[in-house]
Every structure is written in structure tokens, then in C-alpha cells.
Design a protein around this nucleic acid. Structure first.
Lengths: 201, 201
DNA sequence: AGCTCCATGTAAGTCGTTACATGATTCA
DNA sequence: TGAATCATGTAACGACTTACATGGAGCT
């Protein structure tokens, strides 16, 4: 149920079309919550039906043969956003395919086990790099969305707004580092096991 | 798609009924992949239809008015299990509601933000404790499932089987610790922000 | 004329949740 | 006799994915 709230939070910074929201997702929210554009469009229609947002149909281009729909938060939407921020949710049950597989690596060869850990490391190294770039941009207040958000908020709150976001992304960096270390220890484990010749192959 | 493979891996250790599999899930696999019993029963029927497992209907009790179904891996099931272990999968896109919310804590009060981080910390502390207990049991080879698994595997492979599982659960412990530290840093951040009086409330 | 971007959807299907439903067995 | 446990499902629904589908706008 985070998609709807992420959309509400994005709209708090100002009206946007589904297309723009989908692009913002790819550039910021997607680091913490990924969504396809198809899902965003359907969710927006649901939010509209529930009265949390209102849509305004706007002309597009000069001849205006095409239209787009710009969404704005309603008062109910604002309330729902604030309610959600204060609501302590149950964290969802763990479901991590990489760790499931790590538990059963003995069914494969050392080569295959190494490939798993190397892929795991590469994945989180790439994520870490992206998070680091994003956190730098946030700290410098360079992202378009953040600027828009700050423009609509009292100056006294700017530091807090930035600090919360930076803290979240720094957490993701720590998390990625933990995964990288885990993968490295996994590779060391395989070295030890294969030196000992414990498993065949 | 990990549920099916976790089931195949459990069945590699020996035939089990859906009920037993559901219980094993709660006691071991659920730490990495949670599933409801209803889903396990349906998945087993699907695996059976695909020929990856076979079921034998057994009598239950003395009078045998009731039955149960014990599942065994087929050769195809064995192959699928080994194929899966060697297969490097794309890691699923990030989707973490706690981090989404952490990004938007400025819409709530300091009190609410603190409550979020405290709940986050408590959650991962509880998880960490459970993981630590489980890793101890695994290292001492005390869990019923592990014994059953080792009984059916050559003695030379026992160390590797245990080592992989221990490594996976140690990784989960590291992860939980990272989350706890993140929550603590979040609480420190709020202390600084509220001392500075940056946000109202 | 053709390419890229803007813009918005629908449809079918999978995975998973929650609630409902049933009945036998075992043991005190 | 009653409670806990064994045992197996179905039904409805929600979230998400993948593929399909359409067409205008802006620029070269």
C-alpha cells in the first residue's frame, strides 16, 4: 500500500500528470519503491475515485487535439498523507530469494555458488553507487523535485526535509554495503570449502 | 518464484506432507521466505501437476477414516532444484515501505518520526535475536530438518551444508544490525532537529 | 517523412493475503 | 466431552507484471 502514499507525497509538492509522476518515480522514489507506469495510472484513477486527488484535464500542444490529466491533492488526500506518516505499520514478512538460494547452495557446484555471490555483489555495488550519487544531489539540493518541494515549504523546515531524505538514502547505502560484505564473506567461504575439498566438483 | 524452490529443497531432505512442510516453513524457511499454509497447499498441487513432485495418499490414524498426502521429489523436481541453484536471477526491484515513509517524515511531528524509528529498531532487534538463536542451533546441528538433511548426504559434505546455511543466517543478522543502527541514527537526527527547533511541534 | 518523446490506458495472468470451511485424531 | 493438533483445502480480493494498444506533439 505504499504506492498510493508515495503518489500522494509527490503530489504534495505540486500538481503533476501521471506521465510526470511516472518519471519522478524512475528518478527518485524508484530507489525505495519501484512501480510500472501502468500501475501508476490505475492507482491514480483509484485515488481519484476515492476523492484523495482531483484531476484537471488540460490541453496539450497548440492545436489541443490531445489532452493530459494533472492531478492535485485534495484535503482528504492531505489528511491521508499525514495519517500515513504517523501510522506505525507492521513490517512485511521477509521474502528474499537470494537468501533462500544461499541456504541451498550445496545443491550446486562451487562455480555456481561463486557466480551467485559475485552477481549479488555486483548488484549492490551498482545500487550503492546510484544511492551515493542521489544522496549527493539531495544534499546539494539539486534535484528538481526537491527544489519544488522546498519552494512550497517554510524556509525553517528546509533543513529537516533534506535531512530526512538524506538519512533514508544513507540507510540504503549502509544496507548495500552490508550486502556487499556478505557476498565477499560468501566468496571467502567458498575458497575455504573448495581448498578443503569438502564438496565434489 | 522462490516458494516452489524452497518446497523442492525441503523435499530433497525426504518426503513430507503439506502440513509438515508448512510447519517447517514456520520454523526455518520463514526466516527468509514467509508463506501461508493455504499457499503451500496450492503450490504443492501445482508442482504435482507439473510433475516435479509426486504425492502418495496415506492413511491417518488407526481407523483410517482420514488421509494425508506425502510428497516426494521426482527426477524432474531434482533437476529443477539444481537448475535453480545454478541460475543467477535478477534481483527484484526495491520495495521498502519503511524507507518510503522515512523519506517523507517531515509531514509528521517529531513524536511520530521517533515512533517510526523506534518501531523499526524493535522489529529488527526481535528479528536479530531470532536469527541468532537459529544460527546457534544450526551450528550445533540441532534442528530436526538439518539432521534429516545431513543423514541423507555424504559425510564429507556435511560441513559445507552447515556452512552455507550459517553464512546465510549470519548475513541476515548483519542486515538486522544495519537496520538497528540506521534507526538509532534516525533517532539522533530527530534529537538534533528538535533541539534546533527546525520544524513546528 | 520519420523519429523520439509525450501521454494514457487495457487485459491477462501470477503471486500472495485474508477469511472461510471442514472434519479426523489424540489425549486428558 | 472438550480442547489442541493434525490435515486439507476454497473463494474473493489486492498488488503487481508483462504485453498490448493507441495516437498526438515536436523536431529535423
Amino acid at each position: 500500500m505504499s504506492l498510493r502514499h508515495a503518489l500522494l507525497a509527490l503530489l504534495e509538492a505540486g500538481a503533476m500528470t501521471g506521465y510526470e509522476l511516472a518519471k519522478q518515480f524512475d528518478q527518485s522514489v524508484a530507489y525505495v519503491w519501484h512501480a510500472q507506469h501502468s500501475q501508476i495510472y490505475t492507482e491514480l484513477r483509484k485515488l481519484e475515485a476515492e476523492g484523495l486527488v482531483v484531476a484537471e484535464t488540460l490541453a496539450r500542444g497548440d492545436k489541443a487535439l490531445a489532452t493530459k490529466r494533472a492531478y492535485t491533492l485534495t484535503e482528504d488526500g492531505e489528511h491521508e498523507l499525514r495519517r500515513w506518516v504517523g501510522d506505525v505499520e507492521e513490517l512485511p514478512a521477509v521474502r528474499d530469494s537470494a537468501y533462500v538460494k544461499a541456504t541451498y547452495l550445496e545443491y550446486g557446484s562451487y562455480q555456481e555458488a561463486r557466480a551467485q555471490f559475485r552477481a549479488h555483489r555486483a548488484h549492490y555495488e551498482a545500487l550503492r553507487d546510484r544511492y551515493e550519487m542521489h544522496v549527493d544531489q539531495l544534499a546539494r539540493r539539486e534535484t528538481a523535485l526537491l527544489r519544488r518541494r522546498l519552494a512550497g515549504a517554510p524556509a525553517a523546515s528546509h533543513d529537516a526535509i533534506v535531512a530526512y531524505k538524506v538519512h533514508a538514502y544513507r540507510g540504503l547505502i549502509s544496507r548495500a554495503r552490508t550486502e556487499i560484505e556478505w557476498a565477499n564473506r560468501g566468496l571467502e567461504l567458498i575458497d575455504r570449502l573448495s581448498d578443503d575439498g569438502v564438496l565434489p566438483k
